[in-house]
């Protein structure tokens, strides 16, 4: 295979070409989607049994798990207020309230 590009009047090898758009991984963290919310989930820590059924069903990865494997309060930077977590919680430990 020829190392040269067969473009008339252009004499470069593929190594000379500017790489295509390369984006760092995980940069979506810089983009906060929390302001989409019209209702917000409120975690009632006393009622929570730490069953962890809520964290995998969050479409926005907004239920952080700490090093001990326990859930922490919502990450309101990204939570869009869909209410899926409140709906799966077997212990009614998540309330959905209107954003002020």
């Amino acid at each position: 295979m020829s190392k040269k590009l067969s473009v008339p009047g252009v004499d470069v090898s593929w190594k000379d070409i500017t790489p295509g758009g390369i984006v760092e991984a995980g940069t979506c963290r810089e983009f906060k989607t929390g302001d989409w919310r019209s209702v917000k989930p409120v975690w009632k820590q006393d009622a929570c049994k730490q069953c962890l059924l809520c964290f995998p069903v969050c479409p926005d990865s907004s239920i952080p798990i700490n090093k001990d494997g326990k859930r922490e309060d919502f990450d309101y930077d990204y939570c869009k207020g869909c209410g899926v977590c409140a709906n799966v919680c077997p212990f009614h430990a998540i309330d959905m309230v209107d954003e002020d």
Partner: peptide, 24 residues
């Protein structure tokens, strides 16, 4: 409980609709 400790591989901040099934 073990799986929960793994680092998250899909971050928040993507623009799928609220309540979308695909990111789950």
């Amino acid at each position: 409980k073990q799986e929960a400790k793994k680092p998250e591989r899909l971050t928040g901040g993507h623009r799928m609709c609220a309540g979308c099934g695909a990111p789950v």
